[in-house]
Design a protein around this nucleic acid. Structure first.
Length: 759
DNA sequence: ACCTCAAACATTTTT
DNA sequence: TGTTTGAGGT
């Protein structure tokens, strides 16, 4: 058996094996950062450290799962089973549930997602009778979120003269009141928002020294991935947890910091040096992912940023093709260009769809792309946007589940009290709300004691409410006694949700019904895989709010083109990458304006985008784009001018007008001569997207097409040597069946396959 | 209380 | 372009 560390270069090995004391790993894009973390944990385990003592914080649950699997492969499953691996939010929610009584929260507290928070803020603003133009719910929510992430509690906020002064200037003097009521209402509903998961963890550690000590002793070794994207409160928590042993390993890349908008702070990397003066540093600078063209082009971008830690990312990989920059007349044409290109490459190189990714700045851009892909029958998977758990029908049913686990959950209550309609309208709900506020109880407590309360509701409605309460109370009992799936199905049926969607035969209704079934299937799966003691509905619901669709099992999407925002692509890599919509006011975003700081973040985002590509990178921008129901003109992104000309090639595309018949929409390409192109004609020929440049028209191509016969020995630049077994088809549809040594039989379209005749 | 239709509005990026 | 909100009718 080989030494498991043989797979690492010297710097990676240092990062993986230097296990005592603080260590900071600055890891360039594609430098094997995940590999280092994986081997570091494996090494710790091999050295006899118990998995129970290791805490590893990653950016997504998916990344954690992948790392866990790779570690299990190295050290065996039994040794790795007690590892704590996950995102900040999911890990800390586990701790919070475990220690909930210290915080006066029930174990089954609800996690409010962004929509829940916004909706609660909206009700508060309405209740206070404030102008919703001045107090925009999403603005208020963002502000509360950023306060929490900077550890500014309600009390701190109220005591801060500076912050109060700012409110006065902005004529938003009631903000503090909203913040306070919001906090109180969350507590009353036994709910935590995303930021509470961090804030309350910190408060737990700060106010209870015994708990702090317990976790300090437990987490003897702490590893943090994507450290450049941690915010202040996360920094504070880590600092506390690591204070006893100081065995902390942070891995990050300042050039890939793209979450400043939600409080990420590069200062955290700099603080590391101050907090742990005897730290060790590692710099992983060798890129194993991309061609040198892509690596160098990325470097030429990032050097325009002033704020950065010095490092030189380099690679031994081959030069590869130039980066193609294309200008199209509209966003639809851009979509067609991308779809056509994918088809061409797929035919030419026998590539799988899963090797392609299309990255964009905003989710809204996906529509035009999706349409083009659908028209060309390219299967794709889209991440982000409206994820499964964000769909209305799913949220509605989940609201019932939430209510059964935590009946004080105000947002869940509001969602379903009259869904499906049961004659309890807005005025009744308002009256209930008023009573709840007056008695300082949750609405749930009010409706369970309707007869003892002074409230203006007529008897008919009262009966309906009590019927509803009885139903929920029955569910609550069932949820604790019966297994998850049984309870979930019963709730879907008894409430009428199931039936309401079943009878709706419109396309949307059918799809909603299917989604509900999928949710129920998911719960069934969960129950099957769960341990005996934890297969209740409450167990299933624990992490649902923290799930993103990237965490979903990839059972259906084996071979699909990936569509996602650049943010979502962080940490991923693909052989072929398209970055679309490189226009001013889109990428860089309009919101960043001319502000230096946010412009640098946009530039880092672009850096992240292009460093996802392994083999080929395509950049495009459109002259006009459909936005808010109107065509808007756009200018080329400044970032394209910042790319070193040595690595790029520009072309202009004229697509035939709106005719989507497949055989007609190949792009007609005209190369626009740029300095780099004309000076450098001898450079490596790109695999062009053009008809002009398909193999059919090259010398080798023509030879192959006309001369190939059965039994010939041929050479393919990817599959190597092989023998022709059969020829079929005519003209440009001529196909050859070839048997390649060590690979097997392939059907090749001669128009595209680069076959060389050997004999 | 509920339904329907027209007008207004909206888009960074995410746990 | 799609979704959400508010007015008005039943």
């Amino acid at each position: 058996m080989n030494n498991y560390l043989d797979n690492l270069n010297s710097e990676q090995r240092k990062a993986a094996t230097h296990i005592e004391g603080p260590i900071m790993v600055i890891a360039g894009a594609g430098s094997g950062k995940t590999r280092v973390l994986t081997y570091r944990i494996a090494h710790l385990l091999k050295q006899g450290v118990s998995a129970f003592n290791i805490l590893s914080l990653t950016f997504t649950n998916k990344a954690a799962k992948e790392m866990q699997n790779r570690i299990e492969e190295i050290v065996g499953e039994s040794k790795a089973i007690n590892l704590w691996m996950g995102t900040f939010h999911s890990t800390f929610s586990k701790i919070l549930r475990f220690e909930s009584e210290r915080l006066n929260y029930p174990t089954n507290f609800t996690i409010y997602d962004t929509d829940d928070s916004k909706s609660l803020i909206k009700t508060i603003i309405k209740e206070l009778g404030l102008d919703k133009e001045i107090y925009k719910p999403s603005f208020i929510r963002n502000k509360i979120s950023s306060l929490k992430n900077n550890f500014i509690t309600v009390e701190k906020y109220k005591n801060s003269l500076e912050l109060n002064q700012q409110d006065k200037i902005a004529k938003r003097t009631d903000f503090g009141k909203i913040y306070q009521i919001y906090t109180k209402r969350c507590e009353k509903a036994a709910a935590m928002d995303f930021d509470d998961l961090l804030l309350k963890t910190y408060q737990l550690l700060e106010n209870h020294s015994d708990i702090l000590l317990k976790y300090q002793k437990k987490f003897k070794y702490i590893l943090i991935d994507e450290y450049q994207d941690t915010n202040h409160i996360q920094y504070l928590i880590i600092k506390k947890l690591a204070a006893l042993n100081e065995n902390i390993c942070i891995v990050g890349d300042d050039a890939q910091s793209i979450y400043a908008f939600r409080g990420a702070n590069i200062q955290n990397i700099l603080n590391f040096k101050i907090d742990y003066p005897d730290y060790t540093t590692c710099k992983l600078e060798q890129n194993y992912r991309s061609t040198s063209t892509i690596v160098n082009a990325a470097n030429s971008i990032i050097k325009h940023n002033e704020k950065q830690i010095k490092k030189v990312v380099w690679t031994k990989n081959k030069t590869g093709d130039k980066i193609l920059i294309t200008n199209t007349s509209s966003d639809n044409d851009e979509g067609r260009l991308v779809a056509n290109t994918i088809i061409e490459i797929q035919k030419q190189n026998q590539e799988n769809y899963k090797n392609f990714a299309i990255l964009y700045r905003t989710n809204a851009q996906s529509r035009a792309l999706e349409e083009s892909l659908r028209k060309r029958n390219i299967s794709y998977k889209i991440y982000g946007g409206i994820s499964f758990y964000q769909r209305k029908e799913i949220k509605d049913l989940l609201a019932y589940y939430r209510l059964c686990i935590n009946p004080n959950d105000e947002e869940a209550f509001k969602r379903i009290i009259n869904y499906p309609t049961r004659g309890i309208g807005t005025t009744t709900i308002q009256n209930l709300n008023i009573a709840a506020n007056r008695y300082e109880k949750s609405i749930w407590e009010i409706i369970n004691n309707l007869d003892d309360i002074d409230i203006k509701i007529n008897q008919g409605t009262k009966n309906k409410i009590q019927e509803f309460a009885t139903m929920i109370n029955n569910f609550i009992i069932n949820a604790t006694q019966k297994n998850a799936y049984h309870t979930a199905e019963e709730i879907a049926k008894e409430t009428g949700v199931f039936n309401k969607l079943y009878t709706d035969k419109s396309p949307e209704g059918v799809s909603k019904f299917e989604n509900i079934q999928e949710l129920l299937n998911g719960i069934k799966d969960f129950e099957k895989n769960a341990d005996l003691g934890s297969n209740k509905l409450a167990d299933f619901m624990q992490d649902v709010a923290l799930l993103t669709d990237q965490d979903e099992e990839t059972k259906y999407d084996t071979n699909k083109v990936t569509l996602m925002t650049v943010h979502a692509a962080k940490g991923l890599e693909f052989p072929y990458v398209f970055v679309v919509g490189l226009e001013e006011n889109l990428f860089p975003s309009m919101m960043s304006g001319e502000n230096q700081e946010s412009l640098e973040e946009e530039r880092r985002l672009f850096y992240v985008a292009i460093t996802r590509a392994k083999i080929r990178l395509f950049l495009s921008y459109a002259k006009t784009r459909f936005k808010w129901g109107q065509f808007t003109e756009s200018k080329m992104s400044r970032f394209l001018n910042e790319l070193d000309e040595e690595y790029i090639e520009k072309q202009e595309i004229f697509l035939e007008k709106k005719d989507y018949k497949p055989y007609k929409i190949y792009p007609k390409v005209k190369l626009v001569k740029t300095k780099s192109y004309s000076n450098n004609l001898k450079s490596i020929p790109s695999k062009k997207l053009t008809k002009v440049n398909t193999v059919e028209n090259t010398e080798i191509g023509r030879n192959t097409l006309n001369k190939i016969r059965n039994g010939m020995e041929v050479k393919h630049n990817k599959f190597g040597k092989g023998k022709v077994l059969n020829i079929s088809g005519e003209g440009s549809n001529k196909k050859a069946t070839v048997f390649f040594n060590g690979i097997g039989q392939k059907n090749l379209l001669l128009k595209f396959a680069r076959l060389e005749i050997l004999s």
